[in-house]
Simulated assay, not measured.
Amino acid sequence: MDATINAFVGLHIIGIAALLGGFLTQTKAMASDEARMTPAMLHGALTMLVTGLTLVGLDQADDRDVNNVKIGIKLAVLTAVLILVYVKRDEARAGKAAFGAVGLLTMTNIFIAVMWT
């Protein structure tokens, strides 16, 4: 079971990298209001959702303690990111507020995962 959980943790990190990497590559364009939501950002967020839910299920199946409050908050933050990225995915410009919110919420989710024990 540990190998499966570790594989899904790796996939979860790849999803985070795709979402945050897509954001960081567009930060220069954000200054000139030219930033847009890239397909990598959407796919990264979806990967995070699927692998995160799978990890919770695997942890519960392995009788590990799951902090449901933490998972609920992370899910709410990721849902907000997904909605923003999905709604703005086809627009030529995402807008500074929406694009900045995606970056801020993504980093918030990372810090919740790392610092909330």
Score class of each variant (00 low, 15 high):
D2V: 13
A3Q: 12
A3N: 12
T4C: 13
I5A: 09
N6E: 10
N6C: 09
N6M: 15
A7N: 12
A7Q: 12
V9F: 13
G10K: 09
G10R: 06
G10A: 15
G10L: 15
L11K: 10
H12L: 06
H12R: 04
I13Y: 08
I13W: 01
G15E: 03
I16C: 09
A17H: 01
A18M: 15
L19T: 00
L20W: 06
G21R: 05
G21W: 01
G21S: 03
G22P: 02
G22F: 06
F23L: 03
T27M: 12
A29R: 14
M30L: 14
E34K: 14
R36L: 11
M37Y: 08
M41F: 00
L42P: 04
L42A: 13
H43S: 14
G44H: 00
G44Q: 02
A45T: 06
T47H: 03
M48W: 04
M48H: 05
L49S: 11
V50L: 12
V50T: 05
T51I: 02
T51K: 04
G52T: 01
G52A: 06
T54K: 09
L55T: 01
D59T: 10
Q60R: 14
Q60N: 12
A61Q: 12
A61D: 09
D63H: 13
R64I: 03
R64N: 10
D65P: 08
D65Y: 11
V66G: 07
V69R: 11
V69P: 00
I71V: 15
G72Y: 01
K74I: 02
L75R: 09
L75N: 05
L75Y: 00
T79R: 11
T79M: 14
A80H: 06
L82G: 11
L82P: 01
I83Y: 13
I83V: 15
L84A: 10
Y86F: 15
Y86M: 14
V87G: 09
R89M: 04
R93A: 13
A94K: 06
A94I: 01
G95W: 04
A97K: 14
A98W: 00
A98F: 02
A98S: 12
F99I: 05
G100L: 07
G100W: 01
A101M: 09
A101Q: 02
A101L: 11
G103F: 07
G103L: 08
G103E: 03
L104Q: 04
L104S: 00
L104R: 07
L104D: 01
L104G: 04
L105V: 04
T108H: 05
T108I: 10
N109I: 07
I110D: 02
I110V: 15
I110N: 05
F111Q: 08
I112R: 00
I112K: 05
I112E: 03
A113M: 03
V114S: 09
M115E: 05
T117Q: 13
T117W: 11
T117G: 13
T117R: 14
